[in-house]
């Protein structure tokens, strides 16, 4: 569920920032900073997800961690999700 929302908003932010997907598909092993979104794009994605899901895992995590792959990114949202 969360994975699908992330994918949907990822593609929206990609369009919003005028970027294109640099990989065939957003699969687990995709390296975030090589996927098409730059760090500003990820910042926007986190803000858009906060708007939609009403939580920002990066500010509520006990041990701050920055993801490098798509799987790590999704895991953070699934793990920290206060609504599960």
């Amino acid at each position: 569920m969360i994975r699908e929302i992330i994918k949907e908003l990822y593609l929206e932010v990609l369009e919003q920032t005028g970027n294109e997907l640099q990989v065939l598909e957003l699969v687990d092993e995709v390296v975030l900073l090589e996927s098409g979104l730059d760090s500003l794009g990820f910042a926007i994605l986190v803000a858009r997800l906060d708007e939609r899901l009403e939580f920002d895992p990066f500010t509520i995590m006990d041990e701050p961690f920055y993801p490098s792959t798509f799987k790590e990114f999704v895991d953070i949202y699934e793990k920290v999700n206060p609504n599960k």
Binding site: S39, A43, A47, D56, T59
Partner: peptide, 12 residues
């Protein structure tokens, strides 16, 4: 500005 964990702030 809105606070953002990646960029410090973002434009809203």
């Amino acid at each position: 500005a809105i606070q953002n964990p990646m960029m410090g702030s973002l434009v809203c």
